[in-house]
C-alpha cells in the first residue's frame, strides 16, 4: 500500500519554456518509468512520471498545460504537496545497446532510464524530438551520461529539422540495437513500433487516470490492461495487439476519443 504522504517541496527549477521540475524528499527505490500521483490540495491530483531518482529524493518534470500543472508551477520550496506511489511497471533495461526515443515531455521520464542504463554498462543512443529550441530540456543532463544524443526540432531551430522518428528510422537502418525504449506522443510511438518489427520494444503510455491502483478501470486498454498497473510501460508484442494504441484514448467519462 502506497498511502498518501504530505511532503514539502525542496527545489523548483525551470528547465525550458513552461517546463519545470519539482524535487522532494521521498526515500525508496523507484524503477525508471514508474509514476507518482501528485495531489495539489484544493486543485487536482494527477499522475506524474518520475524524472529524477536519487535514494532520498525524487523529482517530477512537467509542462504547464492545464489547471493542475499551472497550479503546480506556482508552488515554491516549502509548499506542501501530496505524493502517493510509486505505481506501475517501469522500463526493463537490458542488452548491449539501447535506443531511446523521447518526444516532447516524454524525455522527462526517459532521462532517469538513460542514466540507469549507463550505470548498468549499457550503451545508450538517445533521440530527442521537440517542436522548437525553446522547448528543449534535459539534453545536457543526458549528454553528461555519455550517451550519444541526436536532437530534432519540428521547425529546425535546433539540431535536425523534422521528427524524432526520422532520426530513429535512419539510426535503425545503420545500427543494431538490443531494444528501443520510447516515451512521447502516442502516434509517434506507434510509428516507431511499426519501424521496430523485430526489435524488442517498450513504450510508456499516458492515459486519463483516476484511482491509479488498478480498480476503477478508467485507464484500461485492450483486454482490460490497466495502464496504472500493468503499464505504463508495455512491450511491443502487447502493443501490437492493442487496437487503441496510437489511435484512441478515453476522456474522463470513459468515452473514446481519437488522438
Amino acid at each position: 500500500m502506497n498511502t498518501l504522504k504530505i511532503i514539502k517541496i525542496r527545489v523548483c527549477t525551470t528547465d525550458a519554456k513552461d517546463i519545470k521540475t519539482i524535487t522532494f524528499t521521498h526515500p525508496g527505490s523507484v524503477q525508471p518509468g514508474q509514476f507518482y500521483m501528485i495531489w495539489i490540495p484544493g486543485v487536482d491530483e494527477i499522475p506524474m512520471s518520475i524524472s529524477t531518482i536519487n535514494e532520498e529524493t525524487k523529482g517530477i518534470t512537467f509542462r504547464k498545460v492545464g489547471e493542475a500543472t499551472t497550479a503546480l508551477a506556482t508552488l515554491k520550496p516549502g509548499d506542501l504537496i501530496g505524493v502517493r506511489g510509486p505505481y506501475g511497471r517501469g522500463f526493463t533495461l537490458s542488452g548491449k545497446h539501447v535506443l531511446f526515443v523521447g518526444g516532447g515531455t516524454g524525455i522527462a521520464m526517459l532521462a532517469p532510464a538513460v542514466e540507469q542504463a549507463k550505470k548498468q554498462g549499457i550503451d545508450a543512443t538517445v533521440v530527442i524530438g521537440v517542436k522548437n529550441k525553446t522547448e528543449l530540456f534535459f539534453d545536457k543532463r543526458i549528454k553528461d551520461t555519455g550517451a550519444n544524443v541526436f536532437i530534432s526540432t519540428d521547425d529546425g531551430s535546433f539540431g535536425q529539422k523534422g521528427l524524432a522518428t526520422d532520426i530513429a528510422m535512419d539510426l535503425l537502418k545503420k545500427n543494431t540495437y538490443s531494444s528501443v525504449l520510447t516515451c512521447g506522443p502516442e502516434p509517434m510511438m506507434k510509428k516507431l513500433l511499426d519501424l521496430c518489427k523485430n526489435i524488442p520494444f517498450q513504450a510508456s503510455l499516458e492515459r486519463y487516470m483516476k484511482c491509479s491502483i488498478g480498480i476503477c478501470g478508467q485507464c484500461c486498454i485492450g483486454r482490460g490492461l490497466r495502464v496504472c498497473k500493468e503499464g505504463p510501460v508495455f512491450d511491443g508484442k502487447t502493443l501490437q495487439n492493442i487496437e487503441d494504441f496510437g489511435n484512441y484514448r478515453r476522456d474522463a467519462s470513459g468515452k473514446k476519443i481519437q488522438f
Partner: peptide
C-alpha cells in the same frame, strides 16, 4: 465525467472513494 481527483484514498482498512459516477 465524475468528480475531479483525488477520487480515491487508500486507508488502513479499506478504500474511500468518490468517483462521482463517471460513465460514457
Amino acid at each position: 465525467e465524475g468528480y475531479p481527483n483525488p477520487t480515491i484514498v487508500e486507508l488502513e482498512y479499506g478504500l474511500l472513494n468518490a468517483m462521482g459516477l463517471p460513465n460514457p
